[in-house]
Design a protein around this nucleic acid. Sequence first.
DNA 1: GAGGCCCTATGCAGATACTTGTTGTTGAAG
DNA 2: CTTCAACAACAAGTATCTGCATAGGGCCTC
Lengths: 227, 227
Amino acid sequence: MQILVVEDEPRLAEAIAQILKEKKYMVDIANDGRDGYDLAVSGAYDCIILDVMLPIKDGYQVASDLRKEHIATPILMLTAKDTVADKVKGLDSGADDYMTKPFSPDELLARIRAMTRRQGEVVLDEISFEDLTLSLSAYNITCKDKSVHLNFKEFEILRILMSNPAAVVTKEDLIVKVWGYDSNAVDNNVEVYISFLRKKLEFIGSCVEITALRKIGYRLEVKKSAE
Amino acid sequence: MQILVVEDEPRLAEAIAQILKEKKYMVDIANDGRDGYDLAVSGAYDCIILDVMLPIKDGYQVASDLRKEHIATPILMLTAKDTVADKVKGLDSGADDYMTKPFSPDELLARIRAMTRRQGEVVLDEISFEDLTLSLSAYNITCKDKSVHLNFKEFEILRILMSNPAAVVTKEDLIVKVWGYDSNAVDNNVEVYISFLRKKLEFIGSCVEITALRKIGYRLEVKKSAE
DNA sequence: GAGGCCCTATGCAGATACTTGTTGTTGAAG
DNA sequence: CTTCAACAACAAGTATCTGCATAGGGCCTC
């Protein structure tokens, strides 16, 4: 975990660095706003601790310039200014959090944990099987660089197949899960959509195919090389 | 923008709600930890303001339970407890920010802005997609030199669409996030506002359009050149 | 009471979902 | 080896239902 400390007073900067290093964070220090900005635009840091009163370029400016460049690194602003107006200015210039000096090391660490925690959260947004990727938010399938949109029923069916690639899914299962247990859909309905899906898999050139196992159901498989 | 206030003292809850409503936030209030949790798990809120000392289930518990359920809604913890240990406990139980009473309304609002900003990776005051820019403070959209005002519902819908341009947003999602999860708005309401938005996009000559994907939802797309 | 905002109702167009029918495939019985 | 029944795939046609646009009415603010 990389942290950038932008602070012009060497002793304070060193003290903060020490606190962080003890917790195994990797720390870089910048002594003025310009250096801080230059380091931060790399996007290499997981968190930036930013003083407000800085030579050359103040903290508000640094934060706001970073946001303009679409650098989304969490910023914790750290300063002696404790009026509400200062806090509002800091937060609105792009900071995610604002702490006033003097501060407690434990609180600093807790706020860093809170800010960086969010970073690692991956939104489960897609399912993959071999070279095939199903996007749950965009409702399409992608293989290499080609992608194609799925309509509702196709999507639901493929999602069920892909969420359990090894398993064989019966038509009854599909009807219950896609059409609803009280529907009067017939097997042929499923066959029709399977056929649509096969066409789309073919179109994007995926190596995945939907195999029918007679009397049993459907399963995803990797195409045999000898086509 | 939906905000949940979890606070057992009715007068304070009402005061907070008032501050927020003035800024056009939609506010729900829960009076104890259990109700707060039940409302929050819906995932309908953009932000939760959470008191610590609550009947039935305290704020730490609520925050930590929500995180266990993978509800990532930003939480601002609000309490009279101001020791470092309390702050650490609050932040580590899942809160994103921690404010002590008494607090300034302006600071509260600034911290809410800071927390919700990250949601859509908004650069300060505006969101952009292709040639379209949505101003969060002026409630209007601009394309090249033309701009047009949006009313509240139009604005909220477009903000949601633009904050995640690749994703398909269902009508359900829009109803929950714009009308509130307990509203009885119907799909047609959404359709009407989508229709208004399209007219305004057309009017300012944007290359962005709102595409409907049947049975799935809406998505922003760039207009095909061959009109 | 004028104007803006929000919701409801309605007719229409077109995409989607389902049906039907033909052809192809499989496997077991004769 | 042939025949037949059961099952599967697919194309094409039809009907339904979703989504769109527009109009009108209630409500609130100014």
